[in-house]
Design a protein around this nucleic acid. Sequence first.
DNA 1: TTTTTTAAAAATATCTACATTTTTGGTTTT
DNA 2: AAAACCAAAAATGTAGATATTTTTAAAAAA
Lengths: 232, 232
Amino acid sequence: MATNDEKNNLVNLAYVALKRDITEGVYRPGDKLLMRGLKERYEIGSGPMREALSRLVSEHLVTAISQRGFRVASMSIEELTDLYFARAHLEAMITELAVKLGDESWEAGVIASTHTLSKVAQLTSAEDMLGLWDARHKAFHLAIAQGCGSAKLLELRLTMLDQVERYRQLWLRHTVFSADALEAKREEHRQLVEVLLSRDHVKARDMMFEHMTGPVSIISEIIEARDLACQA
Amino acid sequence: MATNDEKNNLVNLAYVALKRDITEGVYRPGDKLLMRGLKERYEIGSGPMREALSRLVSEHLVTAISQRGFRVASMSIEELTDLYFARAHLEAMITELAVKLGDESWEAGVIASTHTLSKVAQLTSAEDMLGLWDARHKAFHLAIAQGCGSAKLLELRLTMLDQVERYRQLWLRHTVFSADALEAKREEHRQLVEVLLSRDHVKARDMMFEHMTGPVSIISEIIEARDLACQA
DNA sequence: TTTTTTAAAAATATCTACATTTTTGGTTTT
DNA sequence: AAAACCAAAAATGTAGATATTTTTAAAAAA
């Protein structure tokens, strides 16, 4: 009667669970999503299941062909490139606006989330550390973006974030599990924050664009290696 | 067996029909969308109808509250302002990229669609003329945007276009039915194309931003007038 | 009298089970 | 080998059962 969220119907539960399963790789890119299996796994009827799938279609995580069912959206170097290109431009634009428009509480939010991110230490398991760093890293970038003041731009940003999530996961493991890469990121973030607070919006914009496109080459290599492994 | 499109299932038909009904004002902002009525109007069962509604929710044309059904998304001056702000920035960014990256066939497309748009004359009914001008005006802006070369950016652009559609309809009638306003737009477009082809990406960017934000004040007034009329 | 509470009834949303239609993949026929 | 056919599998859609919310109106409290 108290703690329950807004939306707790079966459609939502299935939607969230399937989305996680796809981004975590339980279902691989291109896999066919059979109704029978989905119904069993998520303990739900076809109607609600279709609705959940339908939502993921509009997020481009699943593709649908009429009368031929659903598949996990495929992944490709081409999509990776275009996705990161578009996202980098969007994020750079939002950053420029944030530097121009952000007020004191924005600055405070950026500084606070920078600090929180820097304090992630190797605690329990490596997997937990990955999750924690990821969450705080996302919070850091969100804190920056929020300065733009536009709910709609932040919404566009989220749709891009959802779409890159599977690719970003590949980069995440590569970065967090390498002391060098992690230190390099930390330095990038430090410089970024410095420029943000100096209110140089042109430099901030350019720097954010670079920050966002950096991972592309790394992810490309991982995907190519994985594709080769699959053929063998 | 020949002309049929890809997706012609009931869900799609209902989705398209309801979307049109909402943007055309058959259902007004804030209206409750009762299952019973929808099922009758679109001759379809609850399952598929929910799926169609669900899609419109992800396009922000409909809102849903769990266990309490669906409503047509409300309209407000606040949303109008933010929506056009975000869209103008996105479109300006895409324009800048198009000017930087667009090739000869892009130029040809822009010139061709400019010409086609300028040739809209008062033929049959005023309503038909409105539709034709709107379609060609959209084609004109699409031709410009396509120069950016990013499918994902064009997709983002479309999601914004869908969201502003109801507001844009208000502006459309105001503009097309006024000889002065229409001539002013024609001149704006002429200047815009001139700058695009001169490859001055900074000026093009700024000019597109202005072009996109111009309608906001007009639409604001129309909405305010309409809201007052409703209270009386 | 007016307001608040409460409980039943009505309306509505959600979900499941089953029926129908379409696709798929193998088998037979030409 | 190519085309036609057929049965199994899968997707799509309907009808009705179940659960939730909203309305209604009477009873209790102010």
